[in-house]
């Protein structure tokens, strides 16, 4: 046997509650983060990701208590991200019980923080989260892709998908790896919340550009979407939210389904 593909439920947390949106908007309540964490862990999740999407820094301070509570109920790894701007923010998350810290806008604004985190805590703690949207304004300096007769490049967005950076994701993930990232959490904004399947073209090209593990995110609506992304790219993990939150599929059910179709998973 060898390393398995990881199935990762994601919990977007706003003001202490798990929420789920569509294309990064229209938020719905999906439950208590600690209860859900325990449930997913018992059901056989390989890892959990918490993204704090609380609007203000003031309210976000509560994340420390949440991290502690989650760490005391689960015995699988978990990542916490959202609003991490400084070493202090990251330290606060890691020293309270998270195994990895996700950094997104903070890393674009100050790429050195990736290196600083790596030197202090080790590469494995540093997850660079990247939100990506197809940009159809063709610019020859970018990596151009074509699908269904349309050409585009993959642009990195920040501030929860609100602001384009002009950065090409292929360039950014290579830089992030060089700077010290241990893993890439790759989210397609176009696909997020659509339940339409992962952006396989995006995932495949990012996976092939780096040697560190990549987590595919955005668009998973059914277990077959995971099978597609695992079969068509060498991605390491698949993240999903709604298929788990709304009880359409238990984590174990999804993993058995994957295993029966030839995807190596832990059961």
């Amino acid at each position: 046997m060898t390393l398995t593909k990881r199935i990762i439920p994601c919990l977007d947390v706003k003001n202490g509650r798990v929420v789920k949106g569509l294309n990064f908007e229209s938020i719905k309540d999906a439950g208590d983060p600690v209860e859900l964490a325990e449930k997913y862990s018992n059901e056989g999740a390989d890892e959990l990701v918490f993204l704090d999407i609380t609007a203000s820094d003031e309210q976000r301070k509560t994340i420390k208590d949440l991290v502690r509570k989650v760490a005391s109920v689960i015995d699988i790894p978990f990542t916490v991200g959202g609003g991490v701007k400084s070493l202090e923010d990251a330290r606060n998350i890691l020293l309270n019980g998270a195994d990895k810290v996700g950094i997104n806008t903070g890393a674009i604004k100050n790429p050195k923080i990736i290196t600083e985190l790596m030197e202090l805590f080790g590469r494995q703690c540093v997850v660079v989260a990247v939100d990506v949207k197809r940009n159809y304004n063709i610019d020859d300096s970018k990596n151009i892709f074509t699908e269904n007769d349309k050409s585009f490049w993959f642009e990195v967005f920040i501030y929860g998908g609100k602001e384009g950076t002009g950065l090409d994701v292929i360039d950014w993930v290579k830089d992030a790896e060089k700077l010290g990232a241990g893993e890439i959490l790759l989210t397609s904004i176009d696909k997020d919340g659509t339940k339409d399947g992962y952006d396989i073209l995006l995932t495949k090209n990012v996976v092939d550009s780096v040697t560190i593990p990549v987590i595919a995110s955005g668009g998973c609506g059914k277990p077959d979407d995971m099978i597609d992304v695992f079969k068509e790219s060498n991605v390491d993990a698949a993240l999903a939210a709604s298929i788990f939150h709304y009880q359409t599929h238990g984590v174990n059910g999804v993993k058995s389904y994957l295993k029966n179709r030839g995807i190596p998973v832990r059961l």
Binding site: L3, E183, T211, R266
Partner: peptide, 29 residues
């Protein structure tokens, strides 16, 4: 890929104190 990150199984080579009661092929992180 490096880091080696995720769940992999144990191939037990010989009995050991830490491994008492642990089955061959157990998943660890």
């Amino acid at each position: 890929k490096v880091p080696h990150m995720g769940w992999n199984n144990l191939e037990i080579k010989k009995p050991g104190k830490i491994l008492e009661g642990v089955e061959n092929d157990s998943w660890v992180y």
